[in-house]
């Protein structure tokens, strides 16, 4: 690949970094990242990765833009109300950087399409907002053998971990299965600080960029926990679990299945009922 004059100028601040240079930028341009969920996490991740020149970005979401989204989902604008999120996401990413390819999937990620979609990418960002979806992304990445960045947010607290399937601690190593119905409230019940989604989505984008570049240390085998109120980051070491139903010694999950919907959500108010995975 030969960088064009325009690309050299556009990506000059990357090229200047000794760890990146022209070759690193070429890796980003050849990189493919799938973002599941064009919501609070997916928005900053998508915008930064587009700006960074990640060559192909896929975005999965079946939802349309809703007024309650705009408090944190910065890929969409007030004028986009009612527009499919993947459309406004694509418009915004292409506006930042026409250099990249954006592929949209205006559908839910499900057991029957997940591996297919994911296998076209090098890295996956889990930007979903509910447990069944997060487990589905984790399982699908395991079966497709693709690294992914998990993040979750609620109120003022966020968490994140990067997983290289079969090599590092996976989501199921830590959480095993979705929590029992009612145990954990969702964002639509408990609320979330808008910028918290920005911080965590940016951490996911950072991991994706580092992975594509092959530099630094990924956030593996460590769970990063961020508390916005005390403004503290801490990491909790998490080892692989031999009893993990997905990657343990005798796994019990041998194929991809849609997890039960969490009954914790109120079907009247929670959009995960109609629209997951999204938001």
């Amino acid at each position: 690949m030969q960088l064009t004059e325009e690309q050299i100028e556009r990506y000059s601040r990357h090229i200047l970094l000794p760890e990146v240079g022209g070759k690193g930028q070429e890796k980003l341009l050849a990189g493919r990242v799938l973002i599941v969920g064009a919501g609070g996490l997916g928005s900053p991740a998508g915008l930064y990765l587009a700006a960074a020149g990640v060559g192909k970005i896929g975005i999965v979401d079946s939802d349309v833009v809703d007024l309650t989204n705009l408090q944190r989902q910065i890929m969409h604008e007030t004028a986009d109300l009612g527009v499919p999120k993947v459309n406004s996401a694509m418009t915004r990413m292409r506006a930042i950087n026409p250099d990249i390819e954006v592929r949209v999937y205006p559908k839910k990620l499900m057991a029957d399409n997940a591996v297919d979609i994911i296998s076209d990418y090098d890295f996956v960002i889990d930007g979903t907002d509910n447990f069944p979806a997060k487990f589905l992304v984790a399982d699908a990445c395991h079966f497709a053998d693709k690294p992914y960045s998990h993040a979750g947010i609620l109120r003022f607290t966020g968490q994140a971990i990067t997983v290289i399937p079969r090599k590092t601690t996976c989501y199921r190593c830590i959480f095993n299965a979705p929590p029992p119905p009612g145990a954990v409230p969702s964002c639509s019940q408990a609320g979330v600080l808008g910028v918290l989604a920005g911080v965590m989505g940016c951490i996911q984008a950072t991991e994706a960029a580092k992975y594509l570049l092959g530099i630094g240390e990924l956030l593996t085998d460590r769970l990063l926990v961020y508390d916005a109120l005390s403004m503290g980051f801490r990491t909790v070491n998490v080892a692989r679990n031999r009893k993990c139903p997905l990657c343990g010694d005798s796994p019990t999950i041998s194929r991809l299945q849609d997890e039960e919907r969490p009954i914790a959500c109120d079907p009247e108010t929670c959009d995960c009922y109609q629209n997951e995975p999204g938001n």
């Binding site: 050299i8 100028e9 000059s12 090229i15 200047l16 240079g21 022209g22």
Partner: peptide
């Protein structure tokens, strides 16, 4: 600057 340095870096690579 810094485009000149960017170009030199790319050439050296």
């Amino acid at each position: 600057c810094p485009m000149n340095f960017v170009k030199v870096k790319l050439k050296l690579e």
